[in-house]
Amino acid sequence: MKKIVVIEDETNIARVLKIELEYEGYDVHVEHEGRSGLNAALEQEADLILQDVMLPGLNGIEILRRIRKAGNQVPVILLTARNQTMDKVTGLDQGANDYITKPFEIEELLARIRACLRDYSFKFIPDTDPILSVKDVKVNLNSREVTRAGHPIELTLKEYELLTYLLSNKNKVVPRENILLNVWGYDFEGETNIIDVYISYLRKKLEEGSSAELITTVRGVGYTIKEN
């Protein structure tokens, strides 16, 4: 049974979420305040955290930041209001896996929860090798450390996710549509050239000072990282 920690100060919403999630077979723990929510998130060994952004005591973005700082990669879905665009952007930058805007349909929320749990299970299978590598680039999936020729490289969350996705498909040409879906999500509404922007960021950080090209553009299709 998967465990979900719900952090929501509106008691009616929290009650409905608990009823619906338990009906779907989840073990649900509910907190109504930011600090107790953070403690539950870190102590309950949750499989997923569903939390509001606006919370008393400690807001949802700060809870998320502390969860990720602690090295916990549990999937987090943010509950946001329609006018909280910056909270959505900040939340994703801080490591949120997804967000859903209030008011929402419970069927959509359940689908997003299933998607996050499925993606997390795929990315963090215990028996798989935690190291992704190509040439002299290595990514440790446990520590999230990225190095080239032994030298550490600092990446933002989205740069890291883009690199790990390309490395997971090493020696394959990855279409732009697949990158957009798997790195930015199916509901991304920004410009598709965001991929080109982040590829350029990665190239600058990974290829600076090296004559060896790491990421190859396949014109009209997408990108690839090849071993040779």
Rank of each mutant, 00 (worst) to 15 (best):
V5F: 03
D9M: 10
I13N: 05
R15C: 04
V16I: 15
L17E: 10
E20N: 06
L21F: 07
E22Q: 14
E22P: 03
Y23C: 06
E24I: 08
E24K: 07
G25I: 11
G25F: 04
Y26N: 10
Y26P: 09
E31R: 15
E31S: 14
E31V: 11
E33G: 05
S36C: 00
N39Y: 09
D47H: 05
L48Q: 02
L50T: 03
L50P: 05
Q51G: 04
Q51D: 00
D52L: 01
L55K: 07
G57D: 11
L58W: 10
N59K: 12
G60D: 02
I63S: 00
R66Y: 09
R66G: 04
R68F: 07
A70N: 09
V74N: 05
V74L: 01
V76Q: 05
V76Y: 01
V76R: 01
I77F: 02
I77P: 06
L78V: 06
T80P: 03
T85L: 14
D87Y: 12
K88S: 05
G91P: 05
L92H: 06
D98M: 11
Y99A: 08
P103Y: 07
F104I: 13
I106F: 11
E107T: 15
E108L: 15
R112G: 07
C116M: 15
L117R: 03
R118M: 13
D119K: 14
Y120A: 11
K123N: 14
T128W: 07
D129G: 12
I131A: 12
I131L: 15
I131K: 15
S133Y: 14
K135S: 13
K135Q: 15
N140C: 13
L141I: 13
L141E: 09
L141Y: 09
N142G: 10
N142V: 14
S143N: 12
V146D: 04
T147R: 11
H151R: 14
P152I: 02
E154H: 03
E154M: 05
L155G: 05
T156F: 04
T156I: 06
E159L: 02
Y160V: 04
Y160R: 07
E161W: 06
L162G: 01
L162N: 01
Y165L: 14
L166P: 06
L167P: 06
S168T: 15
N169Y: 13
V173S: 14
V174G: 04
R176W: 00
N178A: 08
I179Q: 02
I179V: 14
L180P: 03
L180M: 09
V183H: 02
V183F: 02
V183T: 04
V183A: 07
G185L: 06
F188G: 01
F188W: 08
F188M: 03
E189G: 00
G190W: 11
G190C: 13
G190K: 13
G190I: 08
E191T: 01
I194F: 11
I194P: 05
I194N: 00
D196M: 10
D196Y: 12
I199V: 08
S200I: 12
S200M: 14
Y201I: 05
L202F: 06
L202V: 02
R203K: 11
R203Y: 08
K204L: 10
K205L: 10
E207L: 09
E207V: 13
E208T: 15
G209I: 10
G209A: 06
S210W: 13
L214E: 13
T216F: 10
V218F: 11
R219E: 13
G222H: 03
Y223H: 12
Y223M: 10
Y223D: 08
K226E: 13
